[in-house]
């Protein structure tokens, strides 16, 4: 366990010391940097619970070799909004009943933010396709789709208000 490297996480340089080379980014974020929001549920990129942004791209952190993620900005759910001051997407998930056990939720939150940043007014089918890599076992997805749609409408209304 002799890897030393620096990751750029949520705008902060974070040193990783004495790591094992085979550690994935999810493990390093959680166990070495104390960022527990991203969750591990499949270790194969088949559930999306560990989603983070690396270099601006939504990826499964369990499939990123941590030591290879040097030099690129990494954003986790902790970097989206400060504790107690949820983002619009986060608040909408709570308000719409999109959260039950909550294990898939951080991954969905970051995926939904990414979707709405790229596609501000997604159709229902776009939401379904873009979030199809995030498996939820509790909700049946209906309230999650509702939450994303609610944010899209609220942002459009806010933009219209700002423009007038």
């Amino acid at each position: 366990m002799s890897e030393h490297y620096t990751l750029h996480v949520n705008g902060v340089e974070r040193a990783v010391q004495d790591a094992w080379v085979g550690e994935n980014l999810l493990y390093v974020l959680r166990e070495r940097l104390g960022l527990m929001a991203a969750k591990g549920a499949c270790e194969q990129g088949e559930c999306g619970s560990c989603s983070v942004l690396v270099g601006g791209n939504l990826v499964c952190s369990c499939l990123v070799l941590a030591a290879s993620a040097v030099g690129e900005p990494i954003v986790t759910v902790e970097g989206l909004a400060p504790p107690g001051a949820p983002s619009d997407v986060q608040q909408a998930f709570v308000d719409c009943g999109a959260v039950q056990c909550g294990f898939c939720t951080p991954g969905l939150i970051i995926a939904a933010h990414d979707l709405l940043d790229r596609t501000p007014e997604p159709t229902e089918m776009q939401i379904r396709e873009e979030l199809s890599g995030n498996v939820c076992r509790c909700t049946g997805y209906g309230r999650i789709i509702e939450a994303v749609q609610q944010v899209a409408v609220a942002r459009r209304t806010a933009d219209a208000g700002a423009a007038s």
């Binding site: 527990m36 504790p83 949820p86 709570v94 009943g97 909550g102």
Partner: peptide
């Protein structure tokens, strides 16, 4: 009433502690 989950904000912000978050 459609009361909201008291653990909702913690869950969406990733601060809710699941059993795998304890260590």
């Amino acid at each position: 009433a459609s009361a909201l989950r008291p653990d909702g904000i913690a869950k969406v912000q990733g601060t809710f502690q699941f059993s795998s978050d304890l260590g």
